[in-house]
């Protein structure tokens, strides 16, 4: 399995990762090697095997619909990169 340069750039974009132009070839070869190793999976016939998402075949636990969290905006925003008037700031999105 080998990924093209374009594929690596596209994956990096999907993952919102800035990859330096000079590093693309390195990731291309490393990711291709990993996918080649992963390809051993396809040798096994898994027709009819139930996928296993979790060690216990359980559904989500439910609870009463009541307020359990207290407002901690101040302590959470104290560690934010940029806040103003209780809001998180990001670069302008709409002109």
């Amino acid at each position: 399995m080998s990924l093209s340069r374009d594929q690596v750039t596209k994956i990096a974009h999907l993952a919102r990762l800035d990859i330096a132009e000079a590093d693309v070839a390195k990731y291309q070869s490393e990711l291709s090697n990993i996918l080649t190793m992963v390809e051993q999976m396809s040798a096994v016939d898994t027709k009819g095997v139930d996928p296993m998402p979790h060690p216990f075949d359980l559904g989500q636990r439910l609870r009463e619909d009541e307020v359990t969290e207290s407002n901690q905006r101040e302590s959470f925003q104290a560690i934010a990169p940029q806040v103003e008037a209780g809001l998180y700031l990001v670069p302008k999105v709409i002109e």
């Binding site: 594929q7 993952a15 919102r16 990762l17 990731y27 490393e30 990711l31 990993i34």
Partner: peptide, 22 residues
Amino acid sequence: YKRSRGEGFGAEVKRRIMIGTY
């Protein structure tokens, strides 16, 4: 997004994020 993540994560983490994304 892209530079915060690109600069904040190391190479192994980026590899695994990209394999998973793919």
